Simulated assay, not measured.
Amino acid sequence: MRELSGKVAVVTGASGGIGRALAVRFAAEGMSLMLADVDPRGLAETAAMVSGVKVLTQMTDVSDAPAVHHLANRAFSELGGVHVLCNNAGVFQGGRMWTRTEEDFAWLLGVNVWGVLHGIREFVPRMIEQDTEGHIVNSVSVAGLFAGPNLGGQAVSKYAALAASQSLAHDLRQVGSKLRVTALCPGGVRTGISRSERVRPADLAVARTRDDLFSQEWLEALVEKGVDPAEVADATVAAIRDERFLVLTHASYERSLVEQTATLLDGGVPGPPDYE
């Protein structure tokens, strides 16, 4: 998909970070926007940062199927179609596997997995029916490639998001669709992901544990020295144009993937990468 001007992009998790950077970058390409998030203030701030294109916003909890259905209805009816779908909304929850509660997994899987699945189910059939070039970008995270200590719940959700992305790419090719897929796997990026608890639903709230808080502090240090979200948005646009499936934010992850495969084939347990 080489030409973006005049097309329509949908971005979830658009109130800040990578989602905001994607919105700004797509607007610079001349794309109309449908922006979604659970944070109304951040969503409005993102919308105010773009000009010269049509921008719609919608409060949307991506873990809620009817909410995503409504988002899709608005995008197709009010913008005339959708050409780029970014299932970008995501949350972080750290801690050891045996300390994570049902509420923790319900939250992680609801946003990080069901958010992607709802987006696929609501948008992709209609995008196929358009019979135009298009692209689905799923924000997976490097946690979908490497399962490290204190990141078990996160890895479970993100590995699932990667599997969904890969299977979707195969399914689309099998039916001869013009749509393509990118799995965006960022590592350290200057976003608010470490403060995910601020948007956690009250009915899924649980007491914080020491290992959970340790993981949050680790992530805060990681994102503080991370790359600019605008760089990730630039890489995403390049991937859309080049029809590239996997996008990494750090070159060291390529080496880590090779090392991980070798360790697995040798019967060992792969170590975590240098998350950077």
Rank of each mutant, 00 (worst) to 15 (best):
M1F: 02
E3V: 11
T12V: 04
A14K: 03
G17E: 07
I18A: 09
G19A: 02
V24L: 07
R25W: 06
A27T: 09
E29W: 02
G30E: 13
G30V: 13
M31N: 00
S32G: 10
L33Y: 08
V38S: 02
G42D: 01
L43M: 03
A47Y: 12
V50T: 15
S51N: 13
V55A: 05
V55F: 09
Q58N: 11
Q58R: 15
T60V: 12
T60M: 00
D61T: 08
S63H: 06
P66Q: 04
P66S: 04
A67G: 08
V68N: 02
A72G: 11
R74F: 04
A75K: 13
F76Y: 11
S77W: 07
G81T: 10
G81A: 13
V84G: 00
V84M: 01
C86G: 02
A89R: 03
V91E: 04
F92K: 11
G95Y: 02
R100A: 10
E103H: 08
F105L: 15
F105Y: 15
F105A: 07
A106S: 15
L109D: 02
V111T: 15
V111I: 15
N112A: 14
V113N: 01
W114Y: 10
G119H: 01
I120R: 11
V124W: 05
M127G: 01
M127A: 03
E129V: 13
I136H: 03
N138P: 05
N138R: 06
S139R: 00
F146G: 08
F146V: 05
F146I: 07
A147R: 09
A147F: 08
A147N: 12
P149L: 08
G153V: 13
A155P: 00
K158C: 03
K158V: 03
Y159F: 15
A161P: 02
A161Q: 00
A161Y: 00
L162E: 01
L172F: 10
Q174S: 14
L179N: 05
L179H: 05
R180P: 01
R180N: 10
L184F: 02
P186Q: 09
G187C: 08
G188Y: 07
G188W: 06
G188I: 08
V189S: 06
R190D: 08
R190P: 01
R190M: 08
G192H: 09
G192N: 14
S194W: 12
R200W: 05
D203Y: 11
L204G: 06
V206D: 13
A207S: 13
T209Y: 02
R210I: 08
D211C: 08
S215V: 09
Q216P: 01
E217I: 00
W218D: 09
E224K: 12
K225L: 06
G226D: 10
V227A: 14
V232C: 05
A233D: 00
D234R: 14
T236H: 00
D242G: 12
F245A: 04
V247N: 07
L248N: 12
L248H: 11
S252G: 07
S252C: 11
S252I: 14
Y253L: 12
R255W: 05
S256R: 06
S256E: 04
L257H: 03
L257S: 03
T261L: 15
V269K: 06
V269S: 08
D274L: 08
